[in-house]
């Protein structure tokens, strides 16, 4: 009996010490982790929105569609003109499961860039989705002029050789992102974006481009 109590006490001591050490490490790394994630996001937005410069402002809104949260980043220049938007989108049908992308669009909802945030695709096969050869075919495409399916399925997207499932999932994720963006930022009816002169500004930006 006495032995058992000593064992319990010792186990509790070990657990308390472990918890204390972890709490300390968590506290130290909290800030760097937050910064690293933030920088990764900014890097992603930067690389998909054409014309992004460091003095621009990023507004974020979170919308919920079909039970999933999408974060939409609106990039504005100092005068408040909208340069472009980006949305974090995903597909659950990758070869290795879920894959996440940052999708950038210009003010007319045409694609300006894609950034792979996370994936579990096969190295050397599925990871080729990150190469310009595959990615660049999406540039300037929008829901109006493109069917987001691989050519085998009757769409407009060239699949990667021996990585058709990955290609399908990429197309799916991009389509999803565009649909969500279209829903909230196409017809001026958006209740999230308070900018009333939104449409005019959009055209202004287009002229500049």
């Amino acid at each position: 009996m006495k032995d058992n109590i000593i064992q319990v006490i010792k186990l509790v001591v070990v657990c308390v010490v472990a918890a204390a050490v972890l709490a300390m490490v968590y506290d130290i790394t909290k800030e760097p982790i937050r910064i690293a994630i933030e920088q990764e996001t900014i890097k992603a937005v930067k690389s998909v929105v054409t014309g992004y410069t460091d003095d621009m402002i990023i507004d974020t809104v979170t919308v919920t569609e079909n039970g999933a949260d999408f974060i939409i980043y609106t990039v504005k220049d100092e005068a408040g003109n909208i340069i472009g938007r980006s949305i974090s989108t995903f597909s659950m049908n990758g070869y290795g499961g879920t894959m996440c992308f940052m999708l950038g669009v210009k003010s007319d909802n045409k694609i300006s860039g894609i950034y792979v945030l996370s994936h579990k695709e096969t190295p050397g096969l599925g990871t080729k989705m990150d190469l310009p050869l595959f990615k660049d075919q999406f540039l300037d495409k929008s829901l109006k002029n493109t069917i987001f399916k691989v050519k085998n399925d009757g769409g407009d997207i060239d699949a990667i050789t021996s990585a058709t499932i990955t290609s399908r999932a990429v197309a799916e994720a991009i389509e999803l992102g565009l649909i969500v963006l279209d829903k909230y930022f196409k017809n001026e009816k958006s209740d999230i974006e308070p900018d009333t002169l939104f449409l005019d500004k959009e055209e202004e930006v287009e002229d500049v481009n």
Partner: peptide, 30 residues
């Protein structure tokens, strides 16, 4: 550490170090 309960203690110690590695990598080698 008493002999009888060494395995759970080992696991706790190892798990602690793994969590440290996880947090440090996330913070500094993203």
């Amino acid at each position: 550490i008493p002999k009888k309960m060494r395995i759970p203690v080992f696991i706790i110690i190892i798990a602690t170090f793994v969590t440290i590695v996880d947090l440090v990598l996330k913070g500094f080698f993203f």
